[in-house]
Each structure stands twice: as structure tokens, then as C-alpha cells.
Design a protein around this nucleic acid. Structure first.
Lengths: 92, 92
DNA sequence: GTCTTGCTTCGACATCTTTCAATATTGGTT
DNA sequence: AACCAATATTGAAAGATGTCGAAGCAAGAC
């Protein structure tokens, strides 16, 4: 559980997650994610791996490209968890 | 924003937050938190500081004791954020 | 087969985190 | 004042993390 939050606790990974989540298609090719950062491609790959290990995203290879998508269950579970911490007094 | 998630990304701090949140009174004395862990007092103090700096908790000194309480705004903001990532299909 | 492109893994290094013991601070007590 | 109990801060050691370049793996093109 701390693993998931730890995965979220990095600006690059947060941006990656938002980029992936913001797509109407629900998925993004790594080839689109990499140029969005001033970081080497191995670094992006590493961050994506952490997001994947945390259960926040999923990846699928199609031909030469790899596509990432959000796993809503995990995001929802964490969201509910935080809502619980806030005391159930303040409905969103 | 990543700071808040980073603060949540540690098992000790997560437990601390849940301990504080689980109190009906809404607040807990540090003197009750410290013995709940197999860690030194300075370590707990340090973790509480990070939670405070992340805006997740608030502290108030009353006499010799310091009491911590959850700041629901922050927890709610993060909760909503994650709900958004999960695709906006699941209103809380 | 070889080449090229897209992505991942490996190895290394610098930086940040976690933890503790020691010390400082704050407030109550005597 | 001097003293004690509850937290906080400091300084240092061990470990984890972010980053890169180099090397490795797939899959399509030639």
C-alpha cells in the first residue's frame, strides 16, 4: 500500500500517470511519453516500471510499440482510502 | 503535490496517519504514537514532521504534550485527484 | 540473414531517506 | 532558581532512489 503512494510520490511519475489518464483512448504509446520529458528514455522506462509494479498502470505490446493504460481499480482503492482518512465528514 | 504522496509513501507514516485518523476525538498525543512503533522517539518525531509539512496533519501543543490531528482538506484533495485519474467514471 | 527502431535491463554514481544517539527546547514542578 | 518529562533538532551512518550511458531484446524492413 505504501508502495502505491511511493510510486505516486515523484513528479515525473505523477505527470506520466496524468498523461496516460488524460487520453480519451485510455492508452498512450511510450514513444509519446518519452519526448514529453527532459529525461533519457531509460529513465522514463524505469518510472513506468515502478508505476506498473505499483499496479497503477498496465502495459501491452502491439508490434514495435508498447502502450500504457491506467488501472482504475488501484487508483480508486487509494482514493477511497484517503477519503476514509479525511474522517468521512467531508463528502467530495 | 508529489510531496504529499511522498509523505504517504512510507509504512510508518501511513500507520501514523491511520492511527491519528482513527481516533473519534480527532487528535492523538505524540506520547501515544511513539510507543506504537519499534522506533526511536526522534524517528517518530521526524515522520510526524514530514506529515505536517505535507499538510496531511496539524499539531498543537497543550502543556507538555503535543497533539496531532488530520487535515481533511488535504486528504480529500488527494482523494479527488486519484478519483480523477481513475477515469472520472466513478463519482465518490 | 542484417539493419534499424522502440523499449527494457544493467551498472555505476550522486543524491536523498531512514534511522539512531546525543543534544536542545519547552513547559510544569518543586 | 534547579529539575524532570515530553518533543524537537542536530549530525552521522546505512540504505534506497533517480539518473545516465551502454548493452540487450523484440519486431518489422530490407
Amino acid at each position: 500500500m505504501a508502495t502505491v503512494f511511493k510510486a505516486l510520490g515523484d513528479p515525473v511519475r505523477l505527470r506520466l500517470l496524468f498523461l496516460i489518464a488524460s487520453r480519451p483512448s485510455g492508452e498512450v504509446c511510450v514513444c509519446e511519453l518519452t519526448p514529453a520529458f527532459n529525461l533519457s528514455q531509460p529513465t522514463i522506462s524505469h518510472h513506468l516500471k515502478l508505476l506498473r509494479q505499483a499496479g497503477l498502470v498496465d502495459s501491452e505490446r502491439r508490434g514495435t510499440w508498447v502502450y500504457y493504460r491506467v488501472r482504475p481499480e488501484t487508483a480508486n482503492r487509494m482514493s477511497a482510502l484517503l477519503a476514509g482518512v479525511s474522517g468521512e465528514r467531508t463528502p467530495v
